[in-house]
Simulated assay, not measured.
Amino acid sequence: MRRAPTLAASTAAALCLLLTATACSDARGSEDNEPPTVPRGLTVEAGSATSVHVMWNKSTDDVGVSAYLVYRGNTKVKEVSGDRHMVDVTGLTPKASYAFSVRARDAAGNVSPVGEKVPVTLLAPTADDREAPTVPTGLTARGAGPRAAKLRWDAAKDNEKVTAYDIYQRGTRIHSVAGYATSTLVTGLHPGTDYTFTVKARDAADNSSPPSGAVGLTTATAPASGAGPGSTAPGDFEVRARAEGGAYHLDLSWEPPETGGAVAAYEIHLDGRAATTLMWGGDAPEGRAEHSFFVTKERGRTYRVKLRARLPDGNWGAFSAERTVTTR
């Protein structure tokens, strides 16, 4: 004889169904459908006759970026983890021209739109070049806030030409710059941490010099308080108010910080608060930068103005000196 379920059993079954339905609803509600932002600040440097160094700024995501996809034309050639923002692409054809781009992907598989395509032409090969460049000398390192370090060195020499400098941290290559550079900003470091850097010179035939002398530093444990030698802050910052068409605009100009990569974005603050974000992408000026924007129609308004750059690792750098300007 089949018995009717007891009240307790019925209640338990209903509660189980309710919990199951709620769990399913929560799972559906927590689906990640938002893709990461487009990687910006892409730079591509030909390090030799057969390789390029690709570097970009960190993307953002509502949950987190899990990987970056690097494309040569429309073909994916590299995939790196979300905590990396640079990679070498090898096996290319000497003197050939390519265009590279990067997309970001999150753990749910959402992929950002493709970033700007940056062209590059490989170097000419050097026949039977087996002579490595000389060792870079005079390496120095200075802290640039809690997450960055400014490195400088004296140029190496080569029987043909130095085409790249590779920066190493305890024997692991973490960065590369063009052969004409003798300084760079290494970002993505941890506050209050000991680091040891060396530099090697490389030529078009991929011959590498022995490492330079090692130099060490300990990053700061607190945020940088402002500009200074080796700072990540924009330099020589100037502001003036300009009247035009019954309105006032602010004209800004500054020297970009030396980051070892393109500065794709700046955050401009008025009176201590973020007012606007200037996005340049791959069109960031190489020299002194300028920007103008509307502020008010009122005469006699005084503003305090400063700005900071987004570094290649995605963190904001130190603020520039603050300037005061009045609409007249």
Score class of each variant (00 low, 15 high):
residue 111 V to L: 12
residue 84 R to L: 15
residue 328 R to Y: 13
residue 290 E to K: 12
residue 40 R to E: 05
residue 216 G to C: 04
residue 324 T to N: 12
residue 57 N to A: 10
residue 186 V to W: 04
residue 297 K to G: 04
residue 235 G to R: 00
residue 107 A to H: 11
residue 145 G to Q: 03
residue 147 R to I: 00
residue 113 P to S: 06
residue 221 T to C: 08
residue 178 A to I: 09
residue 150 K to Q: 11
residue 220 A to W: 13
residue 4 A to T: 14
residue 231 S to H: 00
residue 111 V to N: 09
residue 271 D to L: 12
residue 34 E to M: 12
residue 157 K to F: 10
residue 228 G to Q: 03
residue 182 T to K: 12
residue 262 A to C: 14
residue 73 G to K: 12
residue 89 V to E: 05
residue 256 P to V: 07
residue 47 G to N: 08
residue 125 P to Y: 05
residue 295 V to N: 01
residue 51 S to E: 03
residue 27 A to S: 13
residue 209 S to Y: 00
residue 212 S to I: 01
residue 257 P to D: 02
residue 139 L to A: 03
residue 319 F to Y: 06
residue 115 G to K: 03
residue 84 R to D: 06
residue 36 P to I: 07
residue 259 T to Q: 04
residue 141 A to D: 05
residue 104 A to Q: 01
residue 83 D to G: 08
residue 166 D to S: 14
residue 35 P to H: 03
residue 25 S to P: 10
residue 11 T to R: 15
residue 285 P to F: 01
residue 210 P to S: 11
residue 97 S to M: 11
residue 202 R to W: 03
residue 112 S to Q: 13
residue 297 K to C: 06
residue 203 D to G: 02
residue 259 T to H: 00
residue 146 P to N: 09
residue 103 R to L: 05
residue 265 A to V: 11
residue 146 P to R: 06
residue 98 Y to D: 00
residue 44 V to M: 07
residue 240 R to V: 04
residue 120 V to A: 00
residue 325 V to Q: 05
residue 205 A to Y: 02
residue 122 L to I: 10
residue 234 P to H: 02
residue 292 S to E: 10
residue 66 S to M: 07
residue 267 E to W: 04
residue 50 T to W: 07
residue 26 D to L: 14
residue 19 L to E: 15
residue 304 R to S: 13
residue 138 G to Y: 02
residue 104 A to L: 13
residue 182 T to V: 02
residue 124 A to Q: 05
residue 166 D to G: 08
residue 100 F to I: 03
residue 88 D to V: 03
residue 302 T to M: 03
residue 131 E to V: 06
residue 53 H to T: 08
residue 204 A to K: 05
residue 227 A to W: 07
residue 40 R to L: 14
residue 188 G to P: 03
residue 266 Y to S: 02
residue 238 E to R: 15
residue 318 A to V: 06
residue 82 G to E: 09
residue 170 R to Y: 11
residue 30 S to E: 06
residue 165 Y to F: 12
residue 139 L to W: 02
residue 247 A to K: 15
residue 171 G to S: 01
residue 317 G to D: 04
residue 271 D to V: 15
